[in-house]
Simulated assay, not measured.
Amino acid sequence: MPVKPKNSVIAERLESLLASTKRSAHNVKLGSNWTCPYCRHAQVVSAERIHDVDSELEVHGSRLTTPYLRVTAVVCANDQCRELTLSAGLSSIVVAKTPVGTHRHVRRPGKSWTLLPPSTAKPQPDCVPEPLRADYAEACAIRDLSPKASATIIRRCLQGMIRDFCGIKKGRLIDEIKELRALVEAGNAPRGVQHDSVDAIDHVRGIGNIGAHMEKDINTIIDVDPDEAQRLIELTEMLFEEWYEARHRREQRLQQIGAIAAEKAQAKAAPKAGEP
């Protein structure tokens, strides 16, 4: 088999790098598995439902070496949704000189934004009280802009859950957590409330305090990054499901059983044909 010239191999590697960085600019690409952020419907992205626009920004004086913008639009395939997801990624074009000439490739995005939907909040059912859903949605909306503030709002949301779902209302969250822990240990906590979830809520209390209170030494900076804020958001989603949604499903099933029993009893008590 003929050996390719060294210069040709270098050129192919640069072209491969260019293609890979373009593909990785966004998580969504043609043929990939994707979950719609609006309706949570899992699907494979088809050619007619995704569109990329690449643009080299012709501006001078930027710290970025030739800014490069990619905008990706995806439409949900679910007929009951069909919402538009829109994202943007900003990177730069780098010029590399090789023995075979000058080549340009696009760096991985230095910054990326989700333009639509306005946040990563998942739709929550009506069985979750509206004030809790509002806090959750706000925490999702500001997760990247201010992770510390997002963590603080999640802390408030979890306190609201303890007060509403568990019926514990005290002046401080730490005291409410202590009482909830005592109920769990005594076996008197509401259905679905477990030791590990109480521990997790206590951890969130400490993290949320970072955003709610200044450290005694103002030069001590303890940060919360977006990924950490996202973990707190996911805990809230989990407790929504384990507490409110599980209780709602149980109530519905029991009501259905009661309705079936009432229907059978009524049919049994009804006079048979020919009877007075």
Rank of each mutant, 00 (worst) to 15 (best):
I93F: 06
P67D: 03
V71I: 11
R70V: 03
A19H: 07
N33C: 03
S24L: 15
V28M: 04
H26G: 11
A96G: 11
E56A: 12
T65Q: 15
I50D: 06
V95A: 04
R70K: 07
P99F: 05
N78M: 01
L18P: 04
G101N: 11
G31P: 11
P99S: 13
L18Q: 15
S55P: 01
R49A: 13
N27W: 08
H41P: 06
L18N: 14
V74C: 11
E83P: 08
A77C: 05
G61C: 01
T98N: 02
H26M: 06
T66G: 08
T65L: 04
C39E: 09
L69W: 12
L18C: 13
S91G: 09
T85E: 06
P37C: 09
E12C: 15
E58H: 00
P99R: 14
R13Y: 06
R82E: 01
S55Y: 02
K97P: 07
Q80K: 15
P99Y: 10
T98S: 03
K22V: 08
E12D: 13
I93A: 01
A42T: 12
V9E: 09
E58S: 08
S24M: 14
K29V: 10
L17F: 06
R82D: 05
A73H: 12
T98I: 07
R13H: 12
T85D: 03
T66A: 12
G61E: 02
A19F: 08
E12R: 15
N27M: 05
V74Q: 10
A47R: 06
E48L: 08
R23E: 02
P37G: 08
A47I: 00
K29Y: 14
V100K: 12
S91R: 03
E15D: 04
R70D: 03
R23T: 08
E15G: 01
R49H: 12
L90P: 04
V53M: 00
K22P: 01
L84G: 05
V74L: 07
K29R: 13
N78R: 00
A47V: 01
A19Q: 14
A42S: 09
L86K: 02
H105K: 14
L17P: 10
V106D: 04
T98Q: 04
G61K: 00
V53G: 00
A73S: 13
S16W: 15
V94I: 08
I50W: 09
N33K: 09
A96C: 14
W34G: 08
R49G: 11
H41K: 02
H51T: 12
C36D: 04
P99M: 04
E15K: 06
T65N: 09
I10H: 00
S24W: 14
H105E: 11
K22T: 03
V44I: 13
A47E: 04
T102Q: 06
S8N: 02
S55N: 05
V53I: 01
L90S: 09
